[in-house]
Design a protein around this nucleic acid. Structure first.
Lengths: 225, 225
DNA sequence: TAGATTGTTAATCGATTAACAATC
DNA sequence: TAGATTGTTAATCGATTAACAATC
């Protein structure tokens, strides 16, 4: 039995992690020295209990009657998200989406840097995406080794996504951010996060429709009575 | 009291809705006539109980020993997601991300059509994004009315996101898909879905780091003993 | 000090998983 | 018929919300 349980890395639940990111963003925008759980809650749109509960996953503690020290909390979150130590990632698929991701301004704020773009289409090789020249697939291994890359982004059509995933895995990639609408089959020790661009929009559409139906119904009921 | 409770629209929980979309995708790819909850589960990576539970939100029923009729189920899901009846949406912000979204091939499969792109930068007006010519902001009202648009996508920098949101709301938009990393303040009856591109990648990064720490620790413990 | 705000424990809620009778 | 697979109910799990003593 290990006796250093206190050093056991704490796994933060996904919903909490997502909110911690919102807190971090807020703290970067805020001017004051201290902030209460109530204020954080109001500004990101949740409740104070939630905020306090989330913050128990961190070391920083608040002071009764004062709140949390903005700078301390901001720094711990910065540390948590690894803002300072850059994570290098590669991207496969030099299409519209790949282009948008390379040019996405939000990544650098979180220490994420796309160091290379690959494509199997010979016509695209050598063309520029942002400041990066598109490289051929056979260069993946070299780049991964050179920059110690662990994460790969897949932005290719679904037909070639599995093939690309296998190449990435064979070159040592341990995490895949998959934009292709297909389930990738990878070894157990490789994380895959699927990103479905239509999901959110579809959800929005669905909930709008339900609201509309409810309104229609209440009208009908009003007419009846 | 309404006596037509049976017509009360069922609100499907978000996680279930997300999985239903995966089932739908699978059923479109599948050749056989029937499919069991077990097979669906395996192919999308969940368990059979989950699948059966999810499907209780639908009308389609399976047959013991046979499974679900693929075509019936596929059609009900198609209906649920409104694949057939096109939802027209507009997009504000003709940058890289806007460009990627307009050219995203996944939307049309789910009956989503971006009918117009707007930008406040005069230099961008008239330029083409996909097949759409970028329009000036003052045209929003006209387009919304003409195409009965209810959903708007915000792809502008965070500084102008709130302003754009207010314009959209004033023109009658009821749902906003927000890509700007800021919280929008809108009336109660307007849905906002925030899309944070960094979130997934950050989560991936976080879980990879935890895994790494765990491995390190187990090495240390092994050395000790 | 009195009162505001914390950290934490307990209660609630919602979603997932397990179990099993119904049935094709 | 026997066995596979369903639909549904009950148990479990995890996350959110409520409550409140501790304390600055």
């Amino acid at each position: 039995m290990p006796d250093n349980q206190d050093r056991e890395p704490i796994v933060i639940p996904k919903p909490t992690l997502d909110r911690l990111k919102l807190y971090h963003r807020l703290l970067n925008e805020v001017e004051q020295k201290h902030i209460s759980s109530e204020e954080i809650a109001q500004r990101i749109g949740t409740n104070a209990e939630q905020v306090r509960k989330d913050l128990t996953f961190l070391k920083t503690m608040g002071k009764p009657k004062v709140g949390y020290d903005v700078e301390t909390l901001r720094q711990e979150l910065e540390e948590l998200f690894g803002v300072k130590k850059t994570t290098k990632v590669i991207l496969v698929g030099a299409g519209h989406l790949g282009n948008a991701l390379v040019n996405y301004p939000g990544f650098e704020n979180y220490g994420i840097e796309i160091v290379a773009v690959f494509d199997k289409d010979p016509k695209k090789i050598g063309s520029f995406i942002g400041e990066l020249s598109v490289l051929p697939m056979q260069d993946i291994g070299r780049v991964v080794k050179r920059f110690h890359v662990e994460i790969g982004i897949i932005c290719v059509p679904k037909e070639s996504a599995q093939e690309v995933a296998e190449i990435l895995v064979s070159k040592g990639i341990k995490g895949i951010w998959n934009f292709a609408p297909t389930r990738l089959i990878v070894p157990n020790d490789v994380f895959v996060v699927d990103e479905d661009m239509t999901q959110s929009l579809l959800t929005l559409k669905h909930y709008l429709e339900i609201k509309k139906k409810k309104i229609q119904e209440s009208h009908q009921n009003a007419e009846k009575s």
